[in-house]
Nucleic acid binder design. Structure first.
Lengths: 343, 343
DNA sequence: CTGAAAGCGCTTACAG
DNA sequence: CTGAAAGCGCTTACAG
């Protein structure tokens, strides 16, 4: 037991110290550590006592060197960083994943890769095996990262259904289309007849699917879709504001709008307010996500709740299963309409 | 070169493959990897060519096993998680640290430890050496984590000056007191005479120091401090709202208020609006941080800018220096008054 | 059920 | 400047 003079760390106990303390071989200690198979109860108890006494903690580097596993998982965000910080969805998702992994004692490495340069460095890091798998957040259809990771054989699960991509990729998503249908039906049930929509980027699943749900409901009601009632946004607050301004110009008789994210809906609210339109009296506004942005909006947003806790839990579950050798899987989770003041 | 049947990862090239390719020993390859000392130019070039050809990337687990270093750094947040997601400051800080570390090719592990249970697990993880050092965010004076880490000899730098603690701990902080002085002087220069304040928690440096700056300026101007003009908050939006409500009840003639964080200032704005007070006409409001919350407030907040980019860069610099064996250091960075619509 | 032994991929004195 | 060799702390067949 040494200790350096400047008050540094003590040399941590090794498996060897535990073995000596317990009066068994190092192999036996290792077996106890890895599930206790083929170990007698007496030996197991002695080892556990020795572990407690010595304060032994496994050296993960040594273990990883052998197993080829890093026992850690990456949370990879390929969006521009502003988006990560602007949109509360990411935060909620990050927290959920951190917690779900903590239950397995697996640390999460946050990887922010908004620029091509960062992406290159991160890809090298990941494919070198420093992480056992990746939780991939936000994939535009043009984003090569997903394919690169899959081609490199890195276990991977995406948040949201990857579009325009070979099938064999895990993902977890809310039922975007169904949620959108619920919201549009709700707006119609309020008696609104000129229902517009602000979509997400049309190279993302949320952009495409939520718009599809909107079209389906209108078609089902025998209402012809007026393209002037559709404006596309980029999931940012400013994008929502700009889209609403366009909508107002193209279709001044707008009386409701389904916005594909709560954050954009905040922007829509700002534009409507500036234009002198009252919400919900003149124009009803429905959001999507039920993120913290929904509650900080005025009026509070009627929205479609994405089950973020379940989404993150499922992402982790599917990823760990895949790391364990299982095949990719897709999970679709139901949404829920949440009625508040805006519609 | 093997490749498993399910399309898994190829076995990555090792130092041995590089050595064979370059026609040198493994030791020589290692020397090139670690700075190229005591290596002939010819050998160095051959090794570099071999590295390029094989696509070699060092196996960090093997390296760490020897060096005792993990080549990674933890970003530890001991606040309740809601705070992390509510207050944009954390996000900005996290991004800055991630970027500063990326320049050294060091990954950052985000560690969220809001509960005692999580804290215990994280402490075990850290003290077992899985991380070379810790960027500690948000330390209340009662928080034992800082002391525990220091006692364990873990390199550590806190964001904000740790209060009520032995001296030997690194930290990086904005000049809270000076920033507060600037703001209060500004409010007085507007002709306001009943200037109140909403403080941060008084067991945090920002709570204590910003209040001290407030008192100093008033004393300097010969204005007696009226304790009814002081209300304490908890850095949350709701806390700011509640504090402003109390202030209005205790001192109805309030004509300005210095709020110790932008997020709380948003809450203050809400309370003032509800009470029918116009900002800045009836009551001028000054914030602190210049976080994204300052720009999303209406009116936009006049505030004290904390130089977050520099703060995160310095935190990383000081931490790496300490990991390299240097002594702890304290860095105080200047703030800047930013004038917008609220005061 | 258990111990002795090999080996994971690297770094680092140690001889030259 | 360079190679041969030891060793970091662990896991895992391999014999018993």
């Amino acid at each position: 037991m040494t200790m350096n003079a400047t008050g540094g760390r003590r040399r941590p106990p090794t498996i060897h110290d535990v073995a000596r303390e317990a009066g068994v071989s190092r192999g036996t200690v290792s077996r106890v550590l890895n599930g206790g198979h083929y170990v007698s109860p007496a030996a197991e108890e002695a080892v556990n006592a020795a572990i407690r006494k010595t304060g032994y903690v496994v050296n993960r580097h040594a273990r990883s060197l052998i197993t080829g596993r890093s026992d850690s998982v990456g949370f990879l965000l390929t969006e521009p960083q502003e988006r990560f910080f602007e949109d509360p969805n990411f935060n909620v998702l990050l927290r959920g994943c951190t917690q779900a992994l903590a239950a397995h004692d697996i640390p999460l490495l946050l990887m922010l890769a908004g620029t091509p340069d960062e992406r290159r460095r991160i890809m090298r890091y990941i494919t070198a095996g420093h992480v056992d798998g990746v939780l991939l957040v936000s994939s535009h259809s043009g984003d090569p990262v997903a394919d690169e990771l899959r081609d490199a054989g890195v276990p991977l699960v995406a948040c949201g259904k990857p579009i325009g991509r070979a099938s064999k990729m895990s993902y977890v998503a809310a039922d975007d289309r169904d949620g959108a249908r619920d919201m549009v039906r709700h707006l119609l049930s309020l008696g609104r007849r000129r229902v517009g929509t602000v979509t997400g980027p049309l190279d993302t699943p949320g952009g495409v699917e939520r718009l599809a749900g909107y079209r389906e409901v209108l078609a089902g009601e025998g209402i012809e879709v007026d393209e002037r009632l559709i404006a596309s946004g980029d999931y940012s607050r400013a994008g929502g504001e700009a889209a609403a301004t366009r909508l107002l110009a193209q279709a001044p008789d707008l009386d409701a709008v389904f916005v594909a994210s709560d954050l954009m809906a905040q922007g829509v609210l700002t534009a409507l307010h500036r234009a002198g339109r009252r919400v919900p009296q003149d124009i009803a506004v429905g959001g999507f996500d039920d993120s913290p942005a929904a509650l900080s909006a005025r009026p509070e947003l009627t929205t479609v709740r994405q089950p973020w806790d379940r989404i993150s839990a499922e992402m982790v579950r599917v990823l760990l299963a895949q790391i364990g050798g299982e095949d990719p899987a897709a999970v679709i989770l139901p949404t829920e309409l949440v009625i508040r003041g805006s519609a």
